[in-house]
Design a protein around this nucleic acid. Structure first.
Lengths: 218, 218, 218, 218
DNA sequence: AATGAATGAGCATTCATTCAT
DNA sequence: GATGAATGAATGCTCATTCAT
């Protein structure tokens, strides 16, 4: 207690509490992510989430206050990985080559599908399950999708101006097809995970999208 | 039906009952289709379905026996329109021109999206919501999707052999992308119905898919 | 079925349903009244109410839709007995003799305390338990109390004008004392039912109130 | 305590702890009193109490051990002010004039209603909310009320013997009316605090009670 | 002296399902 | 052909209480 090596009791406790807190939150959010993706939000109950994390329902309420807040919290982490970093990946590509940037986006998504499958899927699935209901979750998802949409629409508009992306289709709809193809491919993979090879699938996706949008296919 | 002469009271009664029966079933299935699409299966309760049809919950049990059977019955009607007729549409195109046949498929889907939006969406949405859960519904959906998949895979294999569809991507994955793009586009349209123009969107879909798959884009 | 004596099956069923419905509602509201009075609203759960009525929780929801609605429904019946009929009792007394009318009111309340103890108490107790919370229940209770207050204030104002009720105390506060004494007496009786004799108590109440308010005590 | 000279560090610490302890207890009991009165015991949770005192739920358990003990502790303070001092106030009046003593009681209560509104109300409200439930709290409240009752019954019996208080009503019931009127008036004031003037109300109470009980009204 | 994490029992409410008529 | 009454299991949420620190 009086030695310099020892951490004062209070400090140690605080440290332990912080760690414990973070560990519990991590476990709960991880379990929630997995369960929401595989069963859907409504079909997942708090008992499943908490027991998968080795805790009880009460713990979920201690940390999050409601089932919906759990989803919101999971979605916040998803945003970081799925939306924010995708933007960074695009920014890293040459600013004057829209097709390169589109390729960067598609690449990032493909990699993400392998490293963060559940995160990508959650966003897509919740945007469908939460459609009609309004509230914070819906707003949050809508915000994310707007961001994604703007990114792609910007790329395509630039490419059309530069003459490297087909201009016989309006920006908005072309962007919608790109996003839809991405999401659709993830869902297809999700629905029949066993029978599709990830590597081949993402290659097919890339090839089709580029041939379908860029003027000189690569 | 066409005679003006009297039908015996009993017969008339029976006839009326049959008609009434069919009308009630029609109303219930129609309401169920609409509600399942807009809210999801779990989020829709029997009270909503039956009251939307001007009946009571009991009637649903009288006709269908369970909530899941209602879904199954709706799906059976959906199959007819979405899968069986798509096959016919493809058959109507020249057997020796796979690209033509693919175009026929894409066209049919696009038209369907406008005339039978809910039917198309139901199939996609239920395939996601009912994943994981097994049983009759899941089997039925899996069957439908297998049929669709085989149709497209057949077309693509033929086209690759004939040299009119790109062969640098395996059949299975290329077909998956085609289906995924289709479904993804419907979902995207569903999510943001207001901001996308159906006509432009389906044109964009067709153009991208053809440029992305066929060797000589049309 | 074809005889005139027999009630057609449908009619009979309807009749039976109506009876069954009314009987169940009666049982549930009766149980609720008793329990709310003896334990309070919050401290009473739906399991207690429904099982006291020989039914299950679900039945409560079938008929009322929420716990609060049960209370509201009970209160509506209470209003009839405690407020509406009290008004009638007062109206039955000579219009030109306010003291007589006040006596009629006090008498009616005293009788009510014996024949409808729980109804009287419910109103008083809920007005306390529901105080801070706002909503339909609170509004309803406030409405009842306003009606009671106006009745007594009217009597007293008339009496003061006629010179038969003391005028050295403002109407509003004198009326408040009359009502408060009434309610307070019921509560006192409720708290220590064993040790007070109803007959003597109500006599004491009448005597004190009259001597305390009227100029020439009777 | 009164010396300006240094207190040893340890002692000072102890002193500070004692003060802090007492301050925390004071804050908690004060918050509890306010909340129990305005919302009721059941409707108040420990989170509300502790956070209103700037502490956490754990602190409540540290000091009191249970929610019920908090109430008990609050009630003990209430007894002092509401019962013990009322007795002293009565004792201060001439022993040979029961009406004077009754007046002293009523006066004390009226003053109390203004200076210690919540304390007075708590006792009344808890005696209603805790009815039926048995245990320490109930016993404690019953004891307090017995004491009050005996005080008033004694006064009235003396007055009846001395001929200054009406004898046409039995002691027990007359005392009950006096107490009931007192409590009822507080509750009425509590229910509609906005619309009653405290000064006028207590005057009305005094006047009515005296005219209603004493033989020669003052 | 007090906190933060966590529990577990209790509760209002929802909803698919049953059944007599 | 269809209804209305009623059930029972499931579920999100609240909250008093425990405990290590």
């Amino acid at each position: 207690m009086s030695t310099a090596r020892a951490i004062p009791a209070k400090k140690r406790q605080v440290k332990q509490n912080v760690e414990r807190r973070e560990a519990s939150i991590e476990l709960l959010l991880g379990a929630a992510l997995r369960l929401f993706v595989s069963q859907g939000f409504r079909a997942t109950n708090l008992e499943q989430i908490s027991s998968a994390a080795g805790l009880t329902k009460g713990a979920v309420y201690f940390y999050f206050g409601s089932k919906e807040s759990v989803l919101l919290e999971v979605l916040k982490r998803v945003r970081e990985v799925v939306v924010d970093r995708a933007l960074e990946a695009v920014e890293a590509a040459p600013a004057d080559d829209p097709v390169q940037r589109l390729v960067a986006y598609i690449h990032y998504q493909a990699r993400l599908g392998i490293t963060h499958r559940d995160e990508v899927l959650l966003l897509i699935l919740m945007s469908l399950e939460y459609k009609e209901r309004q509230g914070e979750v819906n707003d949050f998802i809508a915000g994310l999708q707007r961001k994604q949409r703007r990114l792609i629409e910007g790329l395509i508009a630039d490419g059309q101006k530069a003459g490297s992306i087909r201009a016989d289709v309006p920006v908005r709809e072309l962007a919608a097809i790109v996003l839809a193809t991405n999401d659709g491919t993830f869902l297809e993979w999700f629905r029949r995970s066993a029978s599709l090879r990830g590597r081949e699938l993402t290659r097919a996706l890339r090839v089709v999208l580029l041939s379908g949008t860029a003027l000189q296919p690569r």
